[in-house]
């Protein structure tokens, strides 16, 4: 990146401090393997943050991703039921289901104009209830080894780092694709939709399509996260619990403006890694895991408060700069001035 997007510096600074602190806090981080393991643990959340970024930056929320992850894992276990030769069709089906849930979220919030907060809250409850009904509270079936490898395995015996997990490679591929996309004209248009959808609509842009696709991306990223999480930690009816709030916290921590129009996808993913690094550090320091929600709550409020204060401060600086460069007063109409 040539230049950091406004408001993204703090997350990288905090992340750097946490990574250094981890090295001091525990022996696991004396070698690069410790950090790769952290990245592996963080990969599902970082991918969820990527999806959540697109929804938030176009002005919405996606609360359904947590229960979507659970639903995906439960469906996978039931359909696979230990049959290795079903792995690939089921993987495709899971991606398709994620896209479908995203599409439904997107269409309901754009065509029916139900606020996305409500649409995806409804989807959260619907998926949660459906999973419960389908499993009677105890998921059946089993994942296959070739399914679980994505979240667990990697290329072994890589010099210096040991295992290079598949999940980290998937994360890098998706993250790079998203970052490159955001630098294209289409990516800039996505930001403009979150900033002022009317201006995009009047410019002839397809606001509803863009918003809907953001939900589809979020749904697909939830499916990918579910595949990795299922592999990593196995089947349970709680696997996705609370992930929607972790993802939103991560995106906000990455300096992405709630309401849309501002923020970088790389910073949103860095926010997810920061959150995971922080939880790891607290764990090493012997602070109860029960505090995770509390910490998250503090972070989300503090990050938004910081963003508001930072924007105000930056405005004053930029405005006074603008004034001192555009002196004195309005230019005469015949003066041609460009940068």
């Amino acid at each position: 990146m040539k230049r950091l997007a406004p408001g993204t510096l703090p997350v990288f600074a905090v992340l750097a401090i946490l990574l250094v602190a981890l090295a001091f806090a525990g022996p696991a981080y004396e070698h690069p393997q410790g950090y790769i393991a952290l990245l592996k643990r963080a990969a599902p959340l970082m991918i969820l943050a990527l999806g959540q970024y697109f929804v938030i930056v176009t002005g919405g929320f996606d609360l359904s991703v947590g229960s979507l992850v659970t639903a995906e894992v439960v469906i996978a276990a039931r359909l696979l039921d230990g049959n290795e030769d079903r792995t690939w069709p089921v993987l495709l089906l899971l991606i398709g289901f994620g896209a479908l849930v995203g599409l439904v979220n997107g269409l309901i919030s754009t065509v029916l104009e139900v606020p996305s907060f409500i649409t995806t809250l409804g989807m959260l409850l619907i998926l949660e209830g459906a999973v419960f009904l389908w499993t009677d509270g105890a998921p059946r079936g089993a994942l296959t080894e070739s399914f679980r490898q994505w979240g667990r395995m990697g290329f072994e015996d890589v010099p210096w780092i040991g295992q290079l997990p598949y999940s980290v490679l998937i994360l890098l591929a998706l993250g790079t694709a998203a970052a490159l996309f955001m630098r294209t004209g289409m990516g800039r248009l996505v930001l403009a939709v979150g900033d002022n959808d009317t201006s995009v609509r009047l410019a002839g842009g397809r606001v509803r399509t863009i918003r809907t696709l953001a939900f589809v991306v979020s749904g697909i990223s939830a499916a990918v996260a579910a595949i990795l999480l299922g592999g990593f930690s196995g089947v349970s009816a709680q696997v996705g619990g609370g992930l929607e709030f972790e993802a939103i916290t991560a995106v906000v921590l990455g300096g992405v403006a709630l309401g849309g129009g501002r923020g970088s996808v790389v910073a949103a993913m860095a926010g997810a890694l920061t959150l995971k690094a922080l939880f790891s550090l607290l764990n090493l320091l012997g602070i109860s895991g029960a505090l995770e929600s509390t910490v998250q709550g503090v972070i989300i409020v503090a990050a938004v408060a910081y963003a508001a204060a930072d924007t105000g401060w930056r405005d004053r600086v930029l405005r006074s700069k603008a004034r001192s460069t555009a002196q004195p007063g309005p230019p005469a109409p015949d003066v041609v001035t460009t940068s």
């Binding site: 800039r188 930001l191 403009a192 002022n196 410019a203 002839g204």
Partner: peptide
């Protein structure tokens, strides 16, 4: 401000808004 511009985007992104939309 309400309909013409995406105020928090850059001058460049606003100038290219229609070209990118259609």
């Amino acid at each position: 401000k309400g309909e013409g511009l995406a105020l928090r985007q850059t001058v460049q992104d606003n100038v290219l808004l229609v070209r990118r939309s259609v």
